[in-house]
Design a protein around this nucleic acid. Sequence first.
DNA 1: CTATAATAGCTAATTATATTAGCCAAAAGT
DNA 2: ACTTTTGGCTAATATAATTAGCTATTATAG
Lengths: 190, 190
Amino acid sequence: MKAGLNKEKIIEKAAELAEKNGLSGVSMKALADELGIKPPSLYKHFGGGLEELNKELMLYGWRLLDGEITKAVIGKAKDDAFIALCHAYRGFVMSHKGLYEAMQWYDMYQSEEHMQASGDAVEIMYRALGSYDMTEEQKVHTVRLVRSFLQGFSTIEVHIGNARRVPLDDSFDFALNTILGGIAGMQKDR
Amino acid sequence: MKAGLNKEKIIEKAAELAEKNGLSGVSMKALADELGIKPPSLYKHFGGGLEELNKELMLYGWRLLDGEITKAVIGKAKDDAFIALCHAYRGFVMSHKGLYEAMQWYDMYQSEEHMQASGDAVEIMYRALGSYDMTEEQKVHTVRLVRSFLQGFSTIEVHIGNARRVPLDDSFDFALNTILGGIAGMQKDR
DNA sequence: CTATAATAGCTAATTATATTAGCCAAAAGT
DNA sequence: ACTTTTGGCTAATATAATTAGCTATTATAG
């Protein structure tokens, strides 16, 4: 007994489970089995039960993603930073489908914690746009556009897979170029 | 007894439940209670149980959305059609948050039925872009961009609500203009 | 180093939901 | 009017989350 567990290790195992079986595969039972303990023991680490576990999983996922996109934009500016960030985001989702589920759908309809977690990613995007010549308000709009696109594209890609007549890679690049073109056009206007 | 139910009526009630309590609020128990019958009776209508119910709910939602965006683009072309479609999509999601959940997350990771259901909406978008001067491939890319943006924006709006320093309405319009600008720029290029 | 307290596991029991089996009355069709 | 199908029901089963209360291990205070 005394398996030497802690929140961190448990969350990591939960993330593994999410990758393997989707978020619905992360149950107290399955997780306990995986850890070699009994379900009630999990409550010693997560008093809030499954809900708390899901919340922690969400936070864990966003921390990982934040790290990835931060790394991606280091030393880059403008379009280079933008493109690198977008590719990093998409790549992260595709290699963490199950975790992304937890990141998205935790506590639908208002969760302060979810907002804060994804807020860090937004902050990174915002700073990556720092090198553009835009008003602050335009930056907010732009971040929202980019964030929406990334989330939508990633989600759809996770759903429908990648084999299509027109490759998704091409569509992704087309979209980034279109958005960049649109932004460039905007800047001329003002 | 013999409550005079059928699939259609049950799905409508399930949709109501989803709107009120989110998708997780749609259980066999809750639905049966709402309909004034016992849970096992639901299996006479949905032999596939909760899974089939969710699937039907998803299809129902997409049919509704297809109707809305079809209506929205009637008699419009180019930017007018594009803008009307986007507003219709966003409006639909905001007034059917619970149903949208069912539309999105049914059977994550590959569902032929989900692809077909959302495929109709894609088809409508595709036709709405018919009036633009683009190659077929560019249209596919564009539909994917727009679809991704709409889905991402809607989802995020559902999550974070609307009260922010910079209004979401403005961001939405900004995004549409940016995308339209990007498309216009593309067209000049080729 | 020992006594005590906190920790992290366990078993047993409770609750809730989904689902299956099998019964039966009402509706529909012949 | 008879028969079949339909759509309810009750009873029973299986599984997951959770709570209560027990206990051995670990950590800490004296």
